[in-house]
Design a protein around this nucleic acid. Structure first.
Lengths: 233, 233
DNA sequence: CGATGACCATCTGAGCAAGTTGGTCATCGA
DNA sequence: TCGATGACCAACTTGCTCAGATGGTCATCG
């Protein structure tokens, strides 16, 4: 039965991806061979090439799934509590979701040796671009502006650039060597206050507005998530 | 005559530093040898070791002088126009001064291959720490707060962390590959507006306050500059 | 006909030799 | 007498080579 076989097929892909993720995190991209993955996933090496056209494609899928998982988490937060769409809460959560996940940290360049040759030019932000996060950011800001949850006294492009800088900088400070660092929670709070002061409107938004925005942003995140997962295999 | 000989000595050190800077910018740290420098400065190789105890010490002096030069430029701006102490103007200027100077850009990690082994762990912010910029930042913020030029509704340490993140992120975005980037001036303006909105008080400061702050910050910058240059040789 | 692993062209990196370089210090000459 | 010098050397780097590993293919199998 075709449906059953497709299910088998999917399950096998999942198993391979799980193995790949585990090995990636403990050994790093370079050191993980397709043979290792095949052996541990108990499939033939050729089988992996029935799913992905190259080693790089396999690992790029891994990264896309990681981003999709984060979007999913954020989506659930918003669905559970619409107030999470307030910019300072959204970006605070985004910061914590990224810094809390080893693979996400690798994408952001935390440990260059994990992704190694995968990160095109060793610049975290550029990998983020490849994954479409910059586009997503612009979309989010547009929605927030439309619903009156952000100031509109400067161009959207400027706000996007500024927020990108704040986020990049926050992630960067995260991986500074020794030295009395605030906890991740504290860093997230600092980020939140800065975002609030620099981008939110002074008057508190009313409930209905927030819910409408939550609806729209939820749809947008869901869309993005689907799109990322759709590129799979 | 001792004074004369000291003058000779200083002049020779300057010549060596000038040669070192020129070669550093065109060849990068690794490729510049002490022999190259000695030959071009027309001194014996051993002579260089009468001034600095190692190649690294020589180049660290170079970096300190670069930072001192930037502080000096900022100092002059403030002395010429006290209004430059307003946070958004100060950091705007700091951004442009750094991005406009090749050596400063190298310190900030723009071109990793220029400093190479000199940058302890390839992390620009950490080199900035070595050069004492973090301490300077805290000092500046304290002064600005004391003179009522910044909000005081969050802890100073938090503001320092936030501004460090914004600056680091701005510098980072500066070196992104291709892609429609704003000009440096535009990026500086975006930074300025963000700093204004997130850290300045809403009401405009009066002239006397600004002049007092300018006085204090001028002294502070001068001090820092002297201290940096004092470590020379 | 999907799955497999032996197979191969290409790549990687350990290991070595030859060349360089940072730093020292015996010597020089003012 | 003492600052300046460059020959010298140990430590490191670079370029090279080749055995072994790796990504990807495809004839064969069940």
């Amino acid at each position: 039965m075709a449906a059953y076989e497709d299910e088998q097929h999917r399950a096998r892909a999942e198993r391979i991806l799980a193995v790949a993720q585990e090995l990636l995190l403990s050994w790093g991209y370079k050191r993980v061979t397709i043979d290792d993955i095949a052996r541990r996933a108990r499939v033939g090496k050729g089988t992996i090439y029935l799913h992905w056209k190259s080693k790089e494609a396999l690992f790029m899928d891994l990264l896309r799934r990681e981003v999709a998982a984060i979007l999913d988490a954020q989506l659930h937060e918003i669905r559970a509590e619409p107030m999470m769409v307030l910019p300072h809460r959204m970006f605070r959560s985004m910061f914590l979701l990224h810094t809390g996940r080893p693979l996400a940290r690798a994408i952001l360049g935390e440990e260059a040796d994990i992704l190694g040759a995968l990160a095109p030019d060793r610049l975290a932000p550029s990998l983020a671009r490849v994954l479409g996060l910059t586009t997503l950011l612009t979309g989010i800001l547009q929605a927030l502006r439309d619903h009156g949850l952000m100031r509109v006294d400067r161009p959207l492009a400027d706000q996007a650039h500024a927020i990108e800088a704040i986020l990049s900088g926050s992630f960067l400070l995260t991986k500074l060597p020794s030295h009395e660092v605030p906890t991740l929670e504290q860093q997230a709070d600092i980020l939140a206050v800065t975002v609030r002061d620099a981008f939110e409107r002074p008057e508190p938004p009313d409930r209905a507005t927030v819910e409408a925005a939550a609806e729209r942003l939820g749809a947008m995140l869901d869309d993005m998530r689907t799109q990322l997962l759709g590129k799979l295999s």
